[in-house]
Amino acid sequence: MNAIKVSTSSLKAMMLVIPPIFILMGLLDTWVPKEIMVKYMGETSGWKGIFLAFLIGSVAAGPLYASFPVAAAFMKKGVKFRNIMILIGAWSSTKIPMLLFEMSSLGSTFALTRLLINVPGIILTAFLLEAMTSKEQKADLYQKAERL
């Protein structure tokens, strides 16, 4: 019975998060031209793309599983693989509300130290994942995102 209660509660929580995310993804798909996304977060975006990926991931609302539809929409728009990995990493560990909670609960020193360790860690991980993922694997991922 406890497992059913927990499962039902989790399902309800997901049903409150997922529909707004899909609505926002539809709006992103409609309102933001692919050329803009490629310009600011595509293959030649450099540090600007990294910064935007961190910013979007850090201010985004919702649990980590909500980042995956966003990542798929970004793939459709031509966002660089590395920037997508940074977005997911930032979404999972550099959320601004989480930082504020940590500051109030665990102290500023802890929260800022964790943030200063996570940021380069996320960047390094994204660069490593990009280097370790073959062009064929990336192309396959982008093709699968197009079909969604």
Rank of each mutant, 00 (worst) to 15 (best):
E130V: 00
S67F: 08
D29K: 12
T8Y: 13
I56W: 10
M15V: 08
S67A: 15
G26D: 00
G57N: 04
F68S: 01
S104T: 13
M14G: 13
K144Q: 13
K12C: 03
W31Q: 11
S134H: 03
D29R: 14
I88F: 06
G107T: 04
F110R: 09
M15F: 15
V70Q: 10
K48G: 00
L129G: 02
I96S: 01
Y65F: 12
G26W: 00
G42A: 10
Q143D: 03
L28V: 14
A53Q: 08
P19V: 09
K144C: 01
M98T: 08
G89R: 03
M75H: 05
E130W: 00
L87H: 07
F81V: 05
L116C: 09
K138P: 12
A66I: 03
L28N: 14
A66E: 08
L52C: 14
T44N: 13
S104E: 15
L115H: 07
N118Q: 10
P97A: 06
E102I: 01
F81L: 10
S93C: 05
P97N: 06
N83K: 13
M132Q: 13
E102H: 08
S104G: 15
V38A: 11
K12P: 00
T133R: 06
N83Q: 11
L28C: 09
K34T: 14
E43T: 06
A72N: 00
A72E: 01
A131L: 12
F110Q: 07
S92Q: 11
A131S: 14
I36R: 12
K77Q: 03
K12V: 08
A60Q: 09
P63M: 05
F54R: 02
I56E: 12
I21T: 13
T133K: 02
M25W: 04
T8L: 14
L112P: 04
L148M: 08
F110E: 08
L106Q: 12
T44I: 00
A61N: 03
M75P: 00
W31C: 12
A60H: 10
P97F: 06
Q137I: 06
L124C: 00
L124F: 00
M41R: 05
Y65Q: 04
V38G: 09
